Amino acid sequence: MKNKSTLFKAEQIVHIIDDDEAVLDSLSMLLDSVGVQNAIYDNAQTFLNSFSSDDISMLSGCIVLDIRMPGMSGMECQQRLEALKCPLPIIFITGHGDVPMAVEAMKKGAIEFIQKPFREQVLLDCIQHALEVNRNNQQRTLHALEVEKRCKSLTERENEVMHRVIAGQANKVIASELNLSQRTVEIHRANVMDKMQVKSLAELVTLVVAKE
């Protein structure tokens, strides 16, 4: 898999999935008119066939998905994407009779649903929100990976000292329990702070607890 840090170099793409060619064309033209990169698919399976977690262009953006389509429905597509751990937020397009299904889809993780007929600005606002959610999720993912990298830079003893420090143990107690000199514990503790790139115990606790 490519380095996740390259995630932010990929332009966000709005993936539009609908069996109605006229809808695909109109939504694509709308997004083109406001400078939003997009891709269209005339059925759910076509999108699933193209999705890969190793393709960074498939990790940045969102999905606009018709809930009722012949063959695979939007909800079934959502379930498949969840199994594939697809990080793209989903906006469902629904007809009047599909609202209960759309509510159920949101309970399963969809970010928005828009009922037909809808105004273009409503869709654009939903897409802007979905792209922001995706961007924030990427930031959290990158931060978690960075913290994990810092933790892996610790020696086994430094890691042990770090967790005892986080648990609130004083240097003297740690030294006694690990059969080390207090000075050695102080050195390990200083190394931990340096490698974890923090300046205070509170900052270290926040960093590690958030990771776990």
Rank of each mutant, 00 (worst) to 15 (best):
I174M: 13
R157F: 12
I174T: 03
E148P: 05
D194L: 06
T141C: 07
R157M: 15
V165I: 14
K149V: 04
Q128T: 11
P89A: 00
I187A: 13
T94L: 01
R119E: 07
H163N: 08
N179G: 13
H129P: 06
A130K: 02
K107Y: 12
I90G: 01
I90D: 00
G95A: 08
E120Q: 10
I166C: 04
H143S: 07
T184M: 09
N137V: 12
M101P: 05
Q128A: 12
R164N: 14
I187P: 13
A175C: 15
E160S: 14
E146P: 03
E146S: 06
S153H: 03
R150H: 14
K172N: 07
N159R: 04
N191W: 03
L180K: 07
Q197H: 08
N159A: 09
D194W: 03
N134C: 15
D194H: 07
K116D: 13
N179W: 13
N137A: 14
Q139G: 07
A102Y: 01
V192A: 00
P89N: 01
S181I: 10
D125H: 13
I111D: 08
A105D: 00
Q128F: 09
P89H: 00
R164H: 15
N134H: 10
N134L: 03
F92A: 02
N134E: 06
V122W: 04
V133I: 08
F113K: 00
Q128Y: 08
V192I: 06
K172H: 08
Q121L: 12
L142C: 14
V147T: 06
H143Q: 10
A105R: 02
R135I: 03
H143W: 10
E112Q: 12
I114P: 02
A144E: 06
V192K: 00
V198N: 01
P117Y: 12
V165Y: 01
L124I: 15
A190Q: 10
L88R: 00
I90A: 00
K195D: 06
Q197R: 11
K152S: 13
P89R: 00
R183N: 11
K116Y: 04
R140N: 05
E112H: 15
R164W: 11
E104V: 08
E120Y: 06
L124C: 08
N179Y: 13
C151E: 12
R183I: 10
M193T: 08
D125A: 15
V133Y: 04
Q138D: 09
F118V: 08
G97I: 05
H188R: 10
V103D: 03
H188P: 05
Q182A: 15
E112C: 12
Q121G: 14
M106G: 03
I166W: 01
V173D: 11
F113V: 01
R157S: 14
S176T: 14
V99M: 08
S176C: 09
V173L: 10
D194Q: 09
V103S: 04
N179P: 07
